[in-house]
């Protein structure tokens, strides 16, 4: 926003009032959330079992 304010202020298309910044902003929000989701899924379904295995091995 500090770097290219004009870019974000461009209209989305000819005759449109919403600027291109609106969908970009919205997708950043959604993107952050989706990334969170991906991390949580992987951590819970892949990393934790590995972790569990290490713990079990260590106890042997």
């Amino acid at each position: 926003m500090g770097f290219a304010p004009e870019f974000l202020a461009q209209p989305m298309s000819e005759g449109s009032t919403l600027s291109i910044g609106v969908p970009i902003g919205a997708s950043i929000l959604v993107f952050a959330w989706v990334m969170t989701g991906i991390y949580v899924r992987r951590a819970n379904n892949e990393f934790d079992p590995i972790n569990q295995k290490i713990l079990e091995d260590a106890h042997k």
Partner: peptide, 8 residues
């Protein structure tokens, strides 16, 4: 006006 839609 239109400035509303861009960073200020």
């Amino acid at each position: 006006g239109f400035k509303l839609m861009g960073p200020g």
